[in-house]
Every structure is written in structure tokens, then in C-alpha cells.
Design a protein around this nucleic acid. Structure first.
Lengths: 159, 159
DNA sequence: AGTGTGTATGTTATAACATAACAAGAGCAT
DNA sequence: ATGCTCTTGTTATGTTATAACATACACACT
């Protein structure tokens, strides 16, 4: 698929959230796994923005809401959401971001704005297919993360 | 350049080490920075294998040799080596590996074997060029890390 | 109702990774 | 000898992540 990366463009965020939650609910039902209150709330928290959050930031929110105060609570919920593909881990930041394209590609690529922290999701070209084939390496999972500046955070060059 | 990834193939490792050290010495001289004993030793330690090491593993080695026992010693040396391009940080592992291709590309891509831990370095195709252009994102640095199995660690399928 | 099973959560403790901040030495130029 | 810069030493702490064990809850079977 050659989809628009979507990430940084302004968009109807509330519908973005709604569809993500619905997709998660549907997927959980289909897979016979539970979107429990903690798990659902963590997903909602991450969906509030397209900014990546650390596990302890998420935990602080849970704590404030009385949903849990100890690290494993946050890590377990995040682990579940990552396993189900509703949330992605950003290795570069040791942080987590809600999946922007529910149902779309696994092994996505990310563009991380160092200005505003927003993370956009894009299609991962098979970046290592050729060298892997050459060397006989069997790729199981690929991390592709670019850091830089989103359009809104770039210094105006013309004016 | 469309270079052989080299990584997992057996090779003359001592010459591999020698050339890396020489390249580092030359580069340091050219840039008027110092390859001090600690820095040099850290590079040598990482060069002993193509396996990524955590900062604390490196530190343990330094400590055993009387070269330093506190985290900042290791992190400073590693930071220097990364800045100079002699060592790469593997985000996925929170670990460090000696650069296998002194002088070659910046922004390399890595293949990480989950069996033996070896890390091979390859050319990073411009994996995000297209989506970045589409969305107006200005890429400054890219992390490309594939995890999987190197040829030696793949279960024999035929026999 | 009682019991077993599986899944999820609560809690303690600790492991693993990383850096801020300040003190002290070493080399070199003035 | 004084000041400057770079490097290292050290203390303390911050940040990220998980192992291990206890508890609870739901459902299924008898």
C-alpha cells in the first residue's frame, strides 16, 4: 500500500481517537482477549496526542486516576497493547505511541519530530531486504525511526 | 555504494581490529581530538567481537583493568567514540557496537542476530525518503535495525 | 455450593541503563 | 605561576524495566 503518512497534518482528532478505540474493541472481541479498564485507559491516554509517552508518564496518569501506581501496571498494559498492535514502542525514545493506522501494516516506520514530539507513522519500505538477502540474514522484525523536524517545527526559510 | 554487508561472514578478525584502530587513530589525529587510553581501550573491547555490549559490560571490563569503575567513565568514552563515528549505538538493545566499516557511511543500518548477538552493518537505503518528502518531514537521523537470525544461527531446514 | 483453571491485577523489590554536578589532575600558552 | 582547556574521578541520583510472588475475579464443570 502506498498510503499517505498522515502524521503531521491537522486532522479530526476526535474521530481519529474514536476509530482507534473502536478498532481496538473489535480486534479484542475477534481475538478473545480483553480490553480491560486499565488497558483501555492507557490506550486512551496515548491517543490523546500523537506524542510518544514514557511508561512512567502513563503510570503517573493512571495513578492520578486511581488505576494503579506501580510500574508493572503500566508496563503490563503497554505490553498488551503493543502485542495487539494498538500501540507501538519507539526504541529511540524508550516510549510508546498509539498506532495511528489501526489495522494497517505491522513493522511500520516512524518519523519523530524533535520539536513537538509528535510521531507520524509511515510505510516501512523493505529497507534491509537487499543486504539481508546478500548475507543470508533472516529478518524477523525491523525498527525504522527517523528523527527530525515536522513541517510545523521547521524554521521558516523563505521569509 | 552497494557494498557487501560483510557482517556475519567469517573474516580475518585481527586485521579487522587493526584497521579499525588505525582508522580511529588517523581520524583523531586529523580532527585534533585525543584517543586517550580509556577511549582507546573501550574501542578495543568493543572490537573484540561484533557483538553489542551494554555500557555496564564495558565498564566491568574497564574496572577489571583498573581504568575506571564509575558509570560516567564508560558513558563518556562511549559517547566520544559514538560522536567520532567509531562506535554505533544500537537503540534496540541499549548497547554499543564497534563500527565495522571505518570511514564508511554514517546513518548505517544494522542486522542484529538474536541467536549469537552479532551485529552486522549494512548500507541504509533511504528508507523514509518518500514518506518524508510527502509529509514535509525533514529527516536528520535515521535508526534502522533489523532483528532476526544470522545464517549460522538459523535452524537447518534441509537436513 | 465447591473446586479447579486461566487471566488479570496488586505489590515488593531490584535490575539495568543513564546523567547532573562538582572536584581534581595534566598539559600547554601566556 | 597563572589561567585555560580537556580529561578523568566521584558522588549522587534519575530513569527505564522486570522478576517474583500474592491476591482477586470470572467462568466452567461437577
Amino acid at each position: 500500500m502506498s498510503q499517505d503518512p498522515k502524521g503531521f497534518a491537522t486532522h479530526d482528532h476526535s474521530s481519529c481517537v474514536r476509530s482507534a478505540i473502536q478498532a481496538a474493541e473489535a480486534a479484542c472481541a475477534a481475538r478473545h482477549v480483553q480490553l480491560t479498564p486499565v488497558r483501555r485507559r492507557v490506550l486512551e491516554i496515548l491517543l490523546e496526542s500523537h506524542v510518544a509517552m514514557g511508561a512512567y508518564d502513563v503510570l503517573a496518569r493512571l495513578d492520578a486516576e486511581g488505576l494503579g501506581s506501580k510500574p508493572p501496571v503500566a508496563y503490563r498494559a503497554l505490553g498488551f497493547l503493543v502485542d495487539q498492535g494498538f500501540v507501538h514502542r519507539i526504541e529511540r525514545l524508550n516510549a510508546f505511541v498509539a498506532c495511528a493506522q489501526p489495522g494497517a501494516s505491522h513493522d511500520p516506520a516512524f518519523m519523530i519530530c524533535r520539536g513537538c514530539g509528535k510521531v507520524a507513522e509511515a510505510e516501512a519500505s523493505a529497507a534491509l531486504a537487499q543486504p539481508a538477502a546478500l548475507s543470508g540474514f533472516q529478518v524477523e522484525q525491523t525498527v525504522i525511526e527517523a528523527e527530525g523536524l515536522c513541517p510545523a517545527c521547521q524554521p521558516e526559510h523563505a521569509a
